[in-house]
Design a protein around this nucleic acid. Structure first.
Lengths: 218, 218
DNA sequence: GTCGAATGAATCGCCGTTCAGTCACGGCTT
DNA sequence: AAGCCGTGACTGAACGGCGATTCATTCGAC
């Protein structure tokens, strides 16, 4: 009911520029343009109130073209989410590898999740709000990537317990969910509110402190 | 665009029972029946995938009747949310008044938010998931009741800071958002997952411990 | 008989999706 | 080099289904 068809991934690294004579080859570049447009539109009006034709217009593409790259409107949201979460996850893995100790890593994780969104209010809004709008996404218990993300958070905590840095009388999974929820809640307020610069960074510092103290073994 | 019409609130305390000869007077009782049915339907399929006719059927009422009590499908969700949040808030205010000290009160708050939902998986699901589905609800920065709820949480924290129990280098508002997010995240997983009995209670204990340690002045 | 709550079939506008047609490209033939 | 095709990406008007909402009608209570 929702296989992704046609799509060729990674290919010709898409040198981004419109280049010379608008090619006639299907490009990942176009797929990306659609995703970017979708972020804007979804953020402004929410998934259900967004029209496919609006996304098409914003992407500078015909309505039908969207269906060459995605199966359905739902698939656009899902792909968007998968795609961006994957990026975040990759960035996190790379970055956290540079740090020693569960505390430092957890702090960095919090800073990064909030930090990356600080400059991307629209994306933040789509992820926190719209994710919950596609029933399918949630029913499947979140997409694979999302579960992967939570498991990653849980593993950071579990590592800390194993090394003796963190209390081991709490469930890493529950803590991961709670931490994600906390970050998500703060982001939501920020995105829907004034979204003032630096707001998330300040929140990140406070939250990191709170969680580290809360998890500290003593 | 969304004034609530016709509706008579609180009146005749609705003695709940179907009573004798199904009256021909508009009753709060019927309104409540519709809300209860809406919880079930929304929980099962999500707000957008739910059909007004399904709610009507579940409530044992004609489609059109719903429009005698609510302005629109959106209004049903909004009313549901306002109504239930108000109940929770009232219960919380009463309960917390019985406890001395910000720590005890915060712990009780966490236990209650999770505890009240423990027996009401469907309601939990509607509140955590569906709330975010009505763009309007969110855009208005959450309903009045929701803001009220958050302010209440923030005030518990602020009290603790004033009394010297909690660190005062964190923003009560940010912490309230984060705490709500954490509880919400845990509830969401629980509601969508196995929802095993006692799961939320256990989570409540862990979360309370974590937050109290994190907020503790030292 | 009057009032108005309740009904539920019919309406009607909307919007996701389709698909017949267009057109750019690149290879092939001459 | 110039003309000719075949291919398939792209287009966007038109379709079709769906479901929220309406409202003419029913009927119970007083």
């Amino acid at each position: 009911m929702t296989e992704r068809r046609f799509i060729r991934r990674g290919e010709a690294a898409s040198s981004e520029g419109r280049a010379k004579g608008g090619g006639r080859k299907r490009t990942d570049d176009k797929r990306e343009r659609i995703l970017r447009a979708a972020v804007k539109v979804f953020a402004k009006k929410g998934f259900y109130a967004s029209r496919v034709s609006e996304i098409a217009k914003a992407a500078g593409v015909a309505d039908g073209t969207i269906y060459l790259y995605f199966d359905s409107k739902d698939d656009v949201l899902e792909s968007l989410f998968e795609d961006r979460t994957e990026r975040l996850l990759t960035a996190l893995r790379t970055e956290l590898a540079k740090h020693e100790g569960a505390s430092a890593r957890l702090r960095r994780l919090i800073e990064m999740q909030l930090g990356l969104l600080e400059g991307q209010r629209e994306l933040a809004e789509v992820i926190t709000v719209n994710l919950r709008q596609s029933t399918r996404l949630l029913r499947q218990y979140g997409s694979k990537r999302f579960v992967e993300y939570l498991e990653f958070m849980a593993s950071v905590i579990a590592d800390g317990q194993r090394s003796g840095e963190f209390r081991d009388d709490v469930s890493p999974r529950v803590m991961a969910r709670a931490l994600f929820g906390a970050l998500d809640g703060v982001t939501l307020t920020w995105a829907l509110g004034e979204a003032r610069a630096g707001g998330l960074d300040k929140a990140a510092a406070q939250l990191a402190e709170l969680w580290l103290r809360g998890l500290e073994k003593r």
